[in-house]
Amino acid sequence: MVTGLIGRTAGRLLVPFIFIFGFYIVAHGHLSPGGGFQGGAVIATGVALVLVCYYYRECMEHFIEAKNFKLIESAGLILFICTALAGLVLASGFFFNWLNASGGLFGNAVEYGANVGDLFTAGIIPVLNFAVGIEVFGGLSVVLLYMFAGLKETTKEEDDAEPHNFAQTEELP
């Protein structure tokens, strides 16, 4: 199991664009189809591409460790709950949309009816979108990392020897 130079280079080039596209889906969750869950899944797809292009061992050496993804996931859930609890403290109840039309962050008043869409509207909904996006990204990445870690891995010497074996098996028929 060897990923060639072309696959590795293409994956390395594509991963930032996949991340940016996932970030766009998360950020525009209140304006267009999408949202936290979908955008987080798209970003986790980028992590899957990194894992396919490079080995799990190499990813652990040069990328991020699995326990950091667990921390990212917990941070997303904590941000979600804290944003909801802030509604209890600053306004009338749990999950109250206390940022909507307040003039602050994401606080612009929305224009009723069909409009072109303003990114800084909808109060706490974009914040919750980001929280859920972070959580889904971390959670799916943890699952992917552990499942890739369950695969039988070859050592570096076997990797170097393996193309030779592939060439031999291809010549047989």
């Binding site: 267009s32 949202g35 509207t121």
Partner: peptide
């Protein structure tokens, strides 16, 4: 739109 300020009704319901 008047209660949550979100253009996307599905996101308004979910969140």
């Amino acid at each position: 739109q008047e209660q949550t300020g979100s253009n996307n009704v599905v996101t308004a319901i979910v969140f």
